[in-house]
Design a protein around this nucleic acid. Sequence first.
DNA 1: CAGCAAGTGGAGAAGTGATTCCACTTGTCT
DNA 2: AGACAAGTGGAATCACTTCTCCACTTGCTG
Lengths: 221, 221
Amino acid sequence: MLQKPSAVDRDLRVDAERNRGRILDAARVVFSEQGLQAPMIAVARRAGVGIATLFRRFPTRDDLITAVFADKMQAYAHVVEVGLADPDPWHGFCRCVETICQMQADDRGFTDVLTVVFPSAAAFEAERNRAAARFTELIEKAKATGKLRDDFVHQDMIMVLMANAGVLAATTEAAQETWRRLVAYLIQSFTAEAAAPLPPPATPEEVTESLVRRSGAQAEA
Amino acid sequence: MLQKPSAVDRDLRVDAERNRGRILDAARVVFSEQGLQAPMIAVARRAGVGIATLFRRFPTRDDLITAVFADKMQAYAHVVEVGLADPDPWHGFCRCVETICQMQADDRGFTDVLTVVFPSAAAFEAERNRAAARFTELIEKAKATGKLRDDFVHQDMIMVLMANAGVLAATTEAAQETWRRLVAYLIQSFTAEAAAPLPPPATPEEVTESLVRRSGAQAEA
DNA sequence: CAGCAAGTGGAGAAGTGATTCCACTTGTCT
DNA sequence: AGACAAGTGGAATCACTTCTCCACTTGCTG
């Protein structure tokens, strides 16, 4: 569904469309290897097009990022659906957390995408929100089984993504499996048996509010 | 101890020494607020000196960083000593983890310092290693009480630092307490009761090997 | 197959940050 | 006080990116 070009990209000339595809492919690789801040020229070169072509098609970096990761964001939402479909919600929950963290480990760019908001990309953010809503359902189902601790909230999943991102960013090849251990530790602490008092979570609004923005206001640091 | 200038900085002229101090003070603030990659010019301006002065005194960024954080690294090691002195090793262990993570939350620059190795700063790294060795002792004592799970290894503490760094990097004011919840979750999963099988940790060598290097080979990304 | 809008590549303008150079100032020592 | 090594600031240079402009192709349509 939703495959034919919408108003935005009303039939590009075939060669232009082909270049667009090449850019997307190149960016996928470059972002995955170097992260989201990779120089645009690197993408253009890999795609075998001029920089102008890249900029003409994707005026801002965010346009490129959201186009590149649209499918991964969809895959991300799909992982939640799969977890929800699991007859054992706790098992589904765990698989879901693990799979998503695996996706981060597989793609440094995606890791960043998950902890950054792109206010200008409505469709993209809608997908993220859809996944979030479904994940919240999964949380409730998992709690109902008595396996997931009662005070777990959706914000905690985002926290996991951020923590995992930190481990992935700090470890290179030599210890690249470290993230698995982190996730295993965390999942164990999410079990009802482990439950002991926790500091209160931020509200969902605060978390969203808090996520690094993208739009030029980037890292005004 | 070790207060008089060693061979390296054999008596600077008083004005030069004063400027050196100003630079250090300025850098402390700037790194804390903006992270380690803050422009050198920002430090110089804040210190009220010319860039040349900064570069003359600290030829590389790492020289400045290690000078700035020498005391924090010492404080870091001290926190471990305090933990070790606690009559209840498990309590000492928990306080130690919490306090160090608090130090990260308080200083974005220090957060980075903890997950990066500075091969050129021997004294600095020596302090880090000393802390690591002492922390390993603390781990053993805590295990002996039966509170800390048996499969906990020193590398896990580094993992905590990296994870915490990720949360801190991704959250701004709005959800700035999120890290506390992460740490609480993790500590709960470090208790012996919570213990369930984990993926194997990387070896200490792998972790060190893996930590992002600093020396120009920085982020060749 | 001509005509032209669509599309292209790459040079260059502009911004940012690191690092060097050097003419000028200032402690310090006698 | 005079001499001079030590120290200083900032302009200049270099490296790197983003982003624009424009002269030159190339699909597409009649």
